[in-house]
């Protein structure tokens, strides 16, 4: 479980390049006290977007990376034994409700189905969190917001959100940004010049054409930024592309060789 990231000052706003009107949608949803669902492929900026918005709205952010062993107690809290006595300890969800911050559940489909049920009373107009173990019933303050995300094209086709859960959220669909936007992102985050960033983005566009045919998942904006960082720190361009863009995508020798041929169309000697 990740430690909560508290609100930073506006001057330390995490970088996020808006693609469309997602920032406005998010802010309006927060003002109207509506929960938000974010869909999108790996590494397209979902987590960064939430961090950015939390900082922008001046709210504490509690991030939980969901996994298949995550139980309701992990979200809500549990009793711990301390010095021969027991002490109640809030989980991230409870803390977010108490402090009126954003609780962000990353990859929520990974969590067990019964876990997501504790979210239901929080996501309708009641906005309450009943804690069975302490007998409390928390009323969420206006600042509280629930945000969940998942990756619809994930390997496990069987894993998807229950319709009854989905229906409770305002949904935003994310995808890899347009080339100009992505170039700005790579340039800013990776610390490379405009020309190199443009080349990396063109290369990513070529590799993304292979999704579904030869590759399970496309190269993400995150990988592009990694690659740019490696290049900016002095690594050779081809080596950086190999380690950050090609090797993470496949294990098959033929696919790797072909991807390197594609890399060479941009960075060949």
């Amino acid at each position: 479980m990740n430690a909560p990231v508290h609100a930073k000052l506006a001057s330390q706003l995490p970088f996020y390049q808006p693609v469309a009107d997602e920032c406005t949608v998010f802010e309006t949803a927060w003002r109207q006290q509506l929960p938000v669902l974010i869909k999108g492929p790996t590494g397209c900026g979902k987590t960064r977007f939430v961090a950015h918005m939390a900082a922008k709205l001046g709210l504490p952010l509690f991030t939980v990376s969901c996994h298949d062993d995550l139980s309701a107690a992990d979200l809500v809290g549990r009793h711990l034994i301390a010095g021969g006595d027991t002490r109640w300890c809030d989980g991230p969800l409870t803390r977010a409700v108490r402090e009126g911050g954003i609780c962000y559940l990353d990859e929520v489909v990974e969590a067990r189905k019964d876990t997501t049920v504790v979210l239901h009373p929080l996501t309708d107009d009641r906005r309450i969190l009943p804690i069975e173990r302490t007998g409390e019933e928390l009323q969420a303050p206006p600042g509280f917001m629930l945000v969940v995300s998942f990756n619809p094209g994930y390997q496990h086709v069987l894993k998807t959100l229950k319709p009854s859960t989905r229906q409770r959220f305002v949904a935003l669909s994310f995808d890899f940004p347009l080339p100009e936007v992505e170039r700005a992102v790579v340039q800013h985050e990776g610390g490379v010049d405009e020309r190199l960033a443009a080349q990396l983005v063109t290369l990513a566009g070529q590799i993304r054409r292979l999704t579904g045919y030869d590759l399970d998942e496309a190269v993400s904006t995150r990988l592009l930024v990694y690659c740019a960082k490696l290049i900016a720190s002095g690594m050779g361009v081809r080596l950086a592309c190999r380690t950050a863009l090609v090797e993470p995508l496949s294990d098959e020798a033929d696919t790797l060789a072909a991807l390197m041929a594609v890399v060479d169309t941009q960075f060949g000697a």
């Binding site: 070529q206 054409r209 045919y213 030869d214 033929d254 060789a257 072909a258 991807l259 041929a261 594609v262």
Partner: peptide
Amino acid sequence: KQAPLFFRAMGGDP
């Protein structure tokens, strides 16, 4: 073995 993948990445019809 590499050709179809390369051709598609270049924008060729899959």
